[in-house]
Design a protein around this nucleic acid. Structure first.
Lengths: 192, 192
DNA sequence: GATGTACTCTTCAGCATTGAAGTTTAGCTT
DNA sequence: AAGCTAAACTTCAATGCTGAAGAGTACATC
C-alpha cells in the first residue's frame, strides 16, 4: 500500500476546519459571513443527497422527478409544452426532447401534438406519474420534518423570515433568474 | 405567432405561488416547513448563479474554480493528488484526469509524478492559479456582504447558529456525505 | 527474490447536456 | 393567396461525466 504521507487526504473538512482554512488563506474574510454562506451550501448539498436517495428508492431519476414536479405544480390537467418545461427547468429544448422520450418510455408522461396548433406538443402527466410524485412527496415530507425537528415554532418563523429576506435581496439584484442553471448547481458554492 | 393560450407559461412562479401550488396538490404539507426548504433551495440556486457569473468574468469555468478552491484550502504548498481531489469534489478519477488536463493547459496547475512514490501524481497550484482564486474570493466577498446586508449582527448570529444546527442534524442522519454529488446538485430540491 | 495483492492514474464506451442548424406550422403583410 | 417572419420542436456534432477495464508501481508474504 502506498504510504499516506506527503499529500493531503481527500476527506471533507468540517465546517470549522474549512472556515479556519479560509481565514488562513484570505485575510479579508468575515468569519460570520463565511459561516452562514458555507452552512447554506452544505445544507443544500445534504438535502439534495437526501432527495436523490428518495427518488432512487422509487425507481426514478432526478431528471424524472424535476419534470413530474413542474407538471404537478402547473395544476390540473397537468399539461405543459416541452419548451415551457425546458424554461422552467433551465434546460435547452434539445435536452427536454430526450428527457420526454425517456419518460414516455417509462410511462410517466404522454406526448401528443396539439391539434389546435400543430406546431406545439403537449406533455401530460399520466396517473402513474402523478402517483410517483405523491410517493416522492411523502418521503420528502418525512425528511423535512426530521430536518427541522430541533427548531421551535418561534425559531422556524424567524428562520423562514430571514431566508425570505435574503432571497428578496438576491432576486432584486438578479432579476434574470432562469436560464443556464445546470452548470451552476454543482457543489459549487461549497464555501466561497 | 402561436397564441399563448392553452398551456401554462414556463416562467418561474414566486415562492408564494409555489407554496400555494404545493398545498393545492398535496394536503399533508406544513407550509412553514415548505417555506424554509424552498427558500433554502432558491437561495442556493441564486448564489450559484452569482458565483458562476463571477468565475465567467474571470475567464475560468466552475470546474476550474472548484479545483482551485480545494488546492488553496489544502494549504501551502498547495499540492494534492488527483484521486484526493476527485474525492474532495465528488467526481470520479476519470473526470479528474480530464479536468487536470484542461487546467494544465490553462496554466492554473502543474502535474508531475511523485518521485518518492512513482504511482502517484502531484497536482500543484501555479502562482497564476492562486491569483485567480484570490480574485474570485474578492468578488465573492462583495456579493456575500451584499447578500447579508439587511441582517443585523444579532440576526446573523441567530441565523448562523440555526443553520449549523440543521447541518448537524442532517450530517448525523447522513454520515456518508461524499461520493456522487454531481447528479444531485442540480436545481433539484427546488421546492420539495 | 518471486508472486500476489492493493492502489493510483489513465483509457475507453455509453449517456446526458449544450449550441446550432434544420423542419414544420402559424400568423402577418401585401 | 403568396411570401415573409417567427416560433416549437427535433436532429446533429461536440463536450464532460460515469463506470469499467487496463497499465504501472509499491508493499507484503512466502
Amino acid at each position: 500500500m502506498g504510504d499516506t504521507s506527503g499529500i493531503g487526504a481527500g476527506t471533507e473538512p468540517t465546517l470549522e476546519e474549512q472556515i479556519a482554512a479560509y481565514q488562513r488563506e484570505f485575510q479579508d474574510l468575515d468569519p460570520q459571513v463565511e459561516q452562514i454562506v458555507s452552512a447554506l451550501s452544505r445544507l443544500n448539498r445534504r438535502m439534495n443527497v437526501a432527495y436523490s436517495r428518495q427518488t432512487a428508492a422509487l425507481g426514478i431519476t432526478n431528471a424524472d422527478w424535476e419534470v413530474l414536479k413542474a407538471l404537478v405544480l402547473s395544476g390540473a390537467p397537468y399539461r405543459m409544452g416541452p419548451s415551457d418545461l425546458a424554461k422552467r427547468l433551465g434546460l435547452t429544448p434539445a435536452a427536454m426532447t430526450h428527457r420526454i422520450d425517456r419518460m414516455v418510455a417509462e410511462g410517466l408522461v404522454t406526448r401528443k401534438r396539439d391539434e389546435a396548433n400543430r406546431v406545439r406538443v403537449i406533455v401530460e402527466l399520466t396517473p402513474a406519474g402523478r402517483e410517483k410524485w405523491l410517493e416522492a412527496m411523502r418521503l420528502a415530507t418525512v425528511f423535512e420534518g426530521n430536518l427541522l425537528q430541533d427548531l421551535s415554532p418561534a425559531e422556524r418563523t424567524a428562520l423562514g423570515e430571514m431566508l425570505i429576506r435574503l432571497l428578496r435581496r438576491v432576486e432584486d439584484a438578479q432579476p434574470d433568474a432562469g436560464g443556464r442553471l445546470n452548470d451552476l448547481d454543482e457543489n459549487f458554492g461549497q464555501g466561497a
